[in-house]
Amino acid sequence: MDLDIYKKSWKNQSVEKSGLSDVDIRKMSHSKSSSIVKWIFIIGVLELVFWTSLNFLVPQKYMELYKDLKIVDVLKATTYLHYLIIIIFLVLFYRNYNSISITDNTKRLMNRILSVRKTVKYYVYYNLGTIIISNILLMSILLKQPDNLVSAINPDGTNIEAGTVITTFVIATALMVLIMFAFIGLIYKFTYGRLLKKLNSNYKDLDSLEHLN
């Protein structure tokens, strides 16, 4: 069977205007897009804002603890570096988003959309990484100076054993990281998972064979 036999009826398909006037088309062209690019942008911005604002949520009490531990200078230096990295991520996010053009070829377009998503993903990984690494570093410093830690966490000198205080601190930190991972996993499943399922499989389809030549 040759598919060419369908070409004639394909060409003869009537122009379906579905009663749309110029006014309708004009109105339509000015309505709001509901494309996945728009959603990826909105969710991406929310994520960037969320993770960036977390950095400002260090309570004053912690600063005192850092002072006691004499790590304020190190902390300042790493904070500046951290801000620089955040800015680089924001610039990358903006540039990738800006480079999305619907008039590109299909493969490049999909690639660009996926890059925006990737920038945000790496930003989140970076933040998680810093949280974990800084906690490990902090803990190792603290464990070397258990007296300071105990007095910082337990300033009133309530009668609790130093070992208990440290264990509680370690468990609390680990729990916090775990909860964050679970939270992010859930968010991803319900946002990007649903948004990008189709795009990812289309990209795979189009990209298959490309590397064989």
């Binding site: 003869n12 398909q13 009537s14 897009s33 494309s35 959603w39 299909t106 289309n202």
Partner: peptide, 27 residues
């Protein structure tokens, strides 16, 4: 490109007439 990459299936999929039931008009 819009159909392949940007379009998200509408969440409001009320059961409407299936397009397969339409008669395709021929000129």
């Amino acid at each position: 490109n819009t159909a392949i990459s940007l379009y998200r299936k509408s969440t409001r999929t009320i059961k409407t007439q299936d397009i397969d039931d339409f008669t395709y008009k021929i000129k």
